[in-house]
Structure formats: C-alpha cells, structure tokens
Simulated scan of single mutants.
Amino acid sequence: MSERAGEAVPAAQKSSWTSFMKSLAGFTGDLSAMTAPPFILSPTSLTEFPAYWCERPELFAAIADGKTEQTRALAVLKWFISTLKGQYTSRNESMGSEKKPLNPVLGELFYGYWPANEARGGKTTLVVEQVSHHPPITAYRIENIAKGVILTGHNAQKTSFSGGSIIVKQVGHAVLAVSLPSGQTEEYLITLPRLRIDGLWYGSPYIELAEMSYIQSSTGWLSTIEYKGKGYFSGKSHTFKATLTPPPHGSSEPTVIEGTWHTNSKDVHTGAVFHDVTSPKEEVTVAPIEEQCEWESRKLWFGVAKGIREGDFETAATFKGKIENDQRQRRRDEATANKTWELKHFQYIESDPVYEHLGKLFKANPPTEDAYVYLNNGPPS
C-alpha cells in the first residue's frame, strides 16, 4: 500500500499531504479541529449539509400521502434512504473525492427553499443555524406546511483515526412529524449512521456508512438499517439492508429492502424497485449573495469558497484566517462583557422527550439526548 500512497495527490501538495497523514497517525482525540491540506478543503460550509435531507422534495412531501401507518413508515424509509447519496457521495461525483467541509462559525445561518408545485404542494423551507462551534453542532428545520411534514434535528461529529481510516461518530438525531387528516401527529425518531472515511493513503477519500441506524415511528413501526461497505479484500461499496418491522403483536410480515443506497434498491420479497436515485436531484434555492446578511453561509465564506474553487489556496487561507480571527475576538469580547451568544432560531433543551419516548421502543443508545427546539421565527420572507 505504501508504494501507492498519495497517488491521487497533486504534485504541489504531496509534502503537505504526507505531513497531514503523519499528523493523523499520531493524533489522539477529536480530529475536527485539525487543519487539512488546502486541496482537500470543500468550498461548502457544513451549514449547507441539511439541504441534502430534501434534495428530492417529492419524496419528503409524499410521506403525508400514505393512507396507513405501514405505508407512511415505508414512505419515510424510502425518503431517508434516498437522502444518503447526496449526504455521503455527492462530493466524490462533483469534486473527485470527499472534501473536508468548512467548519461553521457560531451563529452562521443558511436559508433555502424548494418551490411549490403540483406534486409536492406548497413550498418547502429550510432553516439552518450553527448552534455551537466547540463542538461544532448544526441545527436545522425543514417544513412543507401544505403537506404537514416537518423535520427538526441537529448533527455533530466526533472523529478519530483508526486503521488508516477516519471514523466519524455522528452525534444527534432528527424527528419527523406528520400531521394527519384526523388531527393527530405521527412522529418518527431518526438516528444517524456511523461513517468511515477510507482512501486516505491515496489522497482520494470516500465515505462508507457503517453499523446501524434506526427510524422509530410513534405507531410502533421500526426500520432497522444495516450498512455494509467495501473492505480491503471483499464487499461492495455502499450496500445496505433495511428491515421494516410492525409493532409488537402486529399481524403484518416484515418488509426487507436490499441494495446500494447511492443507486437503487429492491423489496426482497416482491422484487419491486424500492428507491432509485440515479435521476437528477433538485438543488435548494438560495437568495442571491447580495441579498444575504453577513451571517449567511455563502456570503460569509464567499472569498474562501472562490479561492478554493479557483485553486488560489493562499487567498482562501487569508479570508479563512480573517473569519476565524473575528470569531475568536467575538468570544473574547463576550467573555469580557460576561455574555454568551444568543441563538436566533433554536432553543437548547437538555433532554428531548420524543427521543426519550421513542428511543425506549428499540433501546436507543444513549437512552437520552439533548436537542434544539425550533422557535418558529424564520426563514426571512
């Protein structure tokens, strides 16, 4: 392996990549604060990542159209599996390999929407706020009011280096709420898979999903999703097996779905296509840069992103350093004034009652988790 190490690294970056790999190998603790070589930086901030949850907005809206608890649970599973390609392989397709996203500043914002149409009813809106910098935590809200489908969640990462790979434990969860014609609300607790970033030795990182994640419905239906990736000697990339089981004492048989989450999958019993993400996705619509406030991601990181896209890493580093220095000064000023940063769209709670209640149904680990409650005050019109 060592003879091919760094084979995908640009010649001008080989020395910095070698130093980076040596730093990784000797590093203990969380890797999130490490500085990556410029060529592997993404021009996109982590605050934009929640948009991946809804880049197929028809599937998000269609959850509300299910006539039974089972069909809605299947619709949630189909939508969730269909989000994975964008979240975990889209950088490989557009940039050639996985890139390290820009680490958002506290208070950073990202607003977007998907326009209304006949298939999905009204407009679907997105509000994202960086609610913590150390550790980096991103809170988000996606809502289609016309359909009565709302997703609220938060995400953080704990990273470590092991066996030549970066291991990412995703911290946080999401809650999907569906308003029913009866006036009741159905809720789904969604946990997040663990990531393994491979291909580092060659300078061409890519993500594999690992272990398990769960979608627990308040009606008792549970989706258990097992992820398998390509190993050193065997296996196929990006494979999964999802099993939807009925509530205890239910009469329905489990539904088993198998395939590759970045392309398509089938119902094991019927052979019918379950999900297919080989068709084009729909990008989120964002206001022009000149109309954004200083805290919105694309305006805040404009100079950095431009430098990265143009290969002018010196300019990118200059802009990036200024943003980071400004943030450090804000924290010093707050400490001097004995103040703390006030969140704009979310409120922190120590224990999420939905997580605690639904998590008990499948023995979630940990048994409780904190959360960020949306304040219903955005996005701007």
Rank of each mutant, 00 (worst) to 15 (best):
P205T: 08
S165G: 10
E226C: 03
Y188V: 04
S223A: 15
G231A: 08
Y202I: 14
T191S: 05
L180F: 03
P193Y: 10
S204H: 12
T191Q: 00
Y227T: 08
I190E: 00
S165D: 15
T224H: 15
T224A: 13
F240N: 06
T239R: 10
Y188H: 04
S234A: 14
L200W: 08
E211I: 12
V256Y: 05
S217L: 04
F240I: 03
H249S: 15
Y227N: 13
K169Y: 07
L244Y: 03
L180M: 09
I167D: 02
V168A: 10
P193W: 10
D267F: 14
F233P: 01
H249N: 12
T224F: 11
P193Q: 14
S165W: 03
S179D: 09
V178A: 02
G229M: 09
I225Y: 06
L189T: 04
R194Y: 08
S165N: 11
S217H: 10
Y206P: 11
A242Y: 13
K230M: 14
K241H: 11
L192P: 15
H262L: 12
V175L: 07
T219K: 07
G235N: 10
P247G: 09
K169G: 11
G183I: 11
I207E: 08
P181T: 13
R196D: 04
D267W: 15
I166Q: 06
